[in-house]
Design a protein around this nucleic acid. Structure first.
Length: 113
DNA sequence: GGCTTGACCAATG
DNA sequence: CCATTGGCCAAGC
């Protein structure tokens, strides 16, 4: 440990296959009709500030072994990714309502264990 | 080692 | 609400 100056933490590197699986594990716990955010997942992982990497991990979610409700992850403002045109539809099908800004009453819809 | 890019975040005008 | 700005961390050239 003393040989590695930047190892104030990091058990196995933030961006590793293990990291992705930990992200996916949390996403799978989000109940139907609820959402969570990239930043919240980062915090739950014990790494505030890696919200972008959570997003990056989800960009590879097609490689996930098991089905993943990736559409339940939105940004802190309640907006959805520009990369998908069906995310909103999937959420609305679960009862999540939208307004012009994004998820309606986000605070009430966000999942918190 | 610097610059760029990301499914981000928060504050500001 | 939108755009901008600065910050964040890791990867790739």
């Amino acid at each position: 440990m003393s040989t590695n100056p930047k190892s104030s933490f990091e058990p196995e590197r933030v961006m590793s296959p293990g990291f992705r699986e930990r992200v996916y594990a949390i996403v799978r716990r989000v109940p139907k009709g609820r959402v969570t955010t990239y930043g919240r997942i980062a915090v739950m992982l014990g790494h505030p500030g890696v919200a972008r990497h959570v997003g990056n991990a989800l960009a590879f979610c097609e490689q996930a072994a098991e089905p993943l409700p990736w559409h339940r992850v939105v940004n802190a403002k309640g907006r959805i990714s520009t990369r998908s045109t069906i995310q909103r539809e999937l959420l609305e099908a679960e009862g999540v309502q939208f307004n012009d800004a994004g998820v309606d009453r986000l605070k009430a819809v966000v999942w918190s264990e």
